[in-house]
Amino acid sequence: MNLHALRLFHEIALTGSVTRASETLKISQPAITAQVKKLEKELGLVLLKPQGRGVALTDAGETAALLAKRLFAVEQQIEQYARDYASGLNGRIRVAATYLPAHFLMPAWIAMFKRQYEQVEMNIITTNSSEALGKLQQGEADLAIYGGLPEDNPDTIGTEHLFRDELWFVVAPGHRYANRTVKLEDMMREPFVMREEGSSTRARLLSLCRTYNAPSPRIALQFNGLHEAIRAVIAGYGANFVSSLAVREHVERGELCRVNVKDVHLENTIAIWTRKNEPLSAAAQHFIDTIRKSPRLPT
């Protein structure tokens, strides 16, 4: 079908005359009339009929005009969607995030972003660092948010470091080491409440003991979730080695206390991974800009 001719017919139906359609479109009346006649021949329908000095829609023309109106309304919707997508007001963002940022940073970042870009769909996958990297490399994620030890990534991956997150030893307020400075070997004599094997923080603690030639921690209780491990320490049992992001509010409320371990200062890196030499969508770039401006970033 000749969509140009259909558009001319649509304008006649909207304005009610060939003359006004000609003025609106800045196309001569004979040219419009010739195009509409070709359209009628193509469709095998009579769309217009003479009426006084002008024209009117036939019954077939009435129906065709209604369908044309729907068609060009959809066209306008597509054009608007394309403009919104290009400006970042619409679209979809797929984020692969490791446990730490997914649970303690992403909710606030997403809330800030959605207040301004409500129509953008967001899919968040919480996974470990290797799977997050794999999803990014395979195009299954548009960006990844990582928390942990700095990693050497392939040359195809770009890394933007956001900030460093301290790792803290924490105990209940009534613990004998609460708010004290102790040696690492003394701290390792305490029962620890930790996440399951495979936890990156647990691995950091074991590595720390090997580095300083200290006894391995006595992990007396373990949970599959970090929240449960923290609650057990708050309840008064054992110690935990944990991201400051996960327990800062508990410490500020006095539910937990830090233990300063002499000569030990460990940090996680919070970073954004993207694919190099591949432009982000406008929506994804807006999300990264939101993260950069987030007041939750430690100073």
Rank of each mutant, 00 (worst) to 15 (best):
H4V: 05
L6Y: 08
E11Y: 14
V18Y: 07
S22P: 10
S22C: 04
S22N: 08
L25V: 07
I32W: 01
K37C: 02
E42C: 12
P50W: 01
V55C: 03
T58R: 05
A60H: 04
A60Q: 09
G61M: 00
E62R: 12
A64P: 03
A65M: 07
L66Q: 15
L67S: 00
F72P: 01
A73C: 00
Y81L: 14
Y81G: 09
A82K: 11
A82Y: 03
S87C: 13
G91H: 08
R92Y: 15
A96H: 14
A96V: 14
A97E: 08
P101L: 06
A108V: 06
W109N: 02
F113Q: 08
R115T: 00
Y117G: 10
E118H: 15
Q119M: 04
M122W: 10
N123P: 10
T127D: 02
A132H: 00
G134Q: 10
G134N: 12
Q137M: 05
Q138E: 09
G139C: 03
G139E: 02
G139W: 01
I145V: 13
Y146Q: 09
L149E: 12
E151M: 15
D152A: 15
P154T: 01
D155T: 12
D155N: 13
T156Y: 01
T156W: 02
G158S: 11
L162A: 13
D165M: 07
E166H: 12
E166Y: 08
W168K: 05
F169W: 08
R176K: 15
Y177A: 13
D186F: 07
M187K: 02
P191T: 01
F192D: 03
V193G: 01
M194L: 14
G198E: 01
G198A: 04
R202Q: 02
R202H: 00
L205C: 04
S207N: 15
L208T: 08
T211S: 11
Y212W: 13
Y212L: 11
S216A: 13
I219E: 00
L221P: 07
F223P: 05
G225A: 08
V233F: 04
Y237V: 15
A239E: 01
A246S: 07
V247R: 03
V247T: 07
H250M: 09
H250K: 13
G254K: 04
G254A: 03
G254C: 02
V259N: 12
N260E: 10
K262T: 07
K262D: 04
T269E: 06
A271Q: 10
A271R: 13
T274I: 14
R275Y: 03
R275N: 05
E278N: 00
S281G: 12
A284Q: 06
A284K: 05
I291Q: 05
K293D: 14
S294C: 03
L297T: 11
